[in-house]
């Protein structure tokens, strides 16, 4: 697509996209550090993640201001309008991903006060899977690559499957050694937060599709089975 006749309009849109790319990079880094913090029981790194979340909050506000200014001054239509609205929504999605990463990092404190647990490894593995999804979807968003976005969107079902099996694994761990119930329930929150980040990544995929195609991606995303209600039945007497 050609440049705008008013070149300042192009600069405005480019600025928005650059800021989103920057914020996306930071959100990836936050998640990656949070995972490292729980894997290595690194309290200092966890504290850095908690501190770093403020930067994401600031960036969200900057993008919001820039987008609102563009809406007010340029009255964008068609693809420009979709670009601007998507930037607003993606910025707030990235901010939420940041919040979830912060919660994950905080669990490192609890883990560090406990003897090392084998079950942390599969949680971190799930985290890497989610991080991969997030990186890919951010690439898709930046390059407006619809096929890549749709592929990430479809693969979220794999994250759901991992989450369900991880849930069972942690539960088994708790049943085997009730002393780990406290710390394991924290790990369950971590798994849940990772699953939420996966969902947010699919939202960014949907926004990518919306910008390029001008239509919503639809509601028929493949989803994993809900966690079975029969789990409680397996509990020993």
């Amino acid at each position: 697509m050609g440049p705008h006749i008013v070149s300042a309009f192009d600069s405005d849109l480019q600025l928005l996209n650059r800021k989103i790319a920057e914020m996306g990079g930071l959100a990836e880094e936050q998640l990656s550090s949070a995972l490292k913090a729980i894997a290595q029981r690194d309290v200092e790194l966890a504290a850095e993640v908690v501190k770093g979340d403020k930067k994401l909050d600031e960036m969200e506000m900057e993008i919001e201001e820039a987008a609102i200014r563009t809406l007010a001054l340029r009255q964008p239509v068609a693809t420009d309008l979709r670009d601007t609205v998507a930037a607003l929504k993606v910025a707030s999605t990235l901010e939420r991903i940041g919040d979830l990463s912060k919660s994950i990092a905080r669990v490192a404190d609890i883990l560090s006060q406990h003897r090392p647990l084998l079950v942390v490894a599969p949680v971190v593995r799930m985290g890497r899977q989610v991080l991969g999804q997030l990186s890919e979807v951010l690439d898709a968003y930046t390059s407006r690559d619809t096929p890549l976005a749709v592929s990430v969107w479809r693969r979220d079902v794999e994250v759901d499957v991992t989450y369900n099996s991880l849930f069972r694994e942690i539960l088994t761990y708790m049943m085997e050694d009730p002393r780990t119930i406290g710390v394991c329930s924290q790990l369950m929150f971590v798994a849940k937060n990772l699953e939420r980040i996966g969902d947010h990544s699919t939202f960014i995929a949907e926004m990518t599709y919306y910008i390029v195609e001008g239509e919503q991606l639809g509601d028929d995303r493949p989803k994993g089975d809900p966690i079975d209600a029969d789990i409680a039945v397996d509990m020993p007497d």
Partner: peptide
């Protein structure tokens, strides 16, 4: 027309681009 025009010429015109 103003959210998702079909033709590239329409798109260029309404978004103020050099066609």
């Amino acid at each position: 027309i103003f959210t998702n025009p079909h033709d590239k010429r329409t798109q260029d015109y309404i978004t103020g681009r050099i066609g």
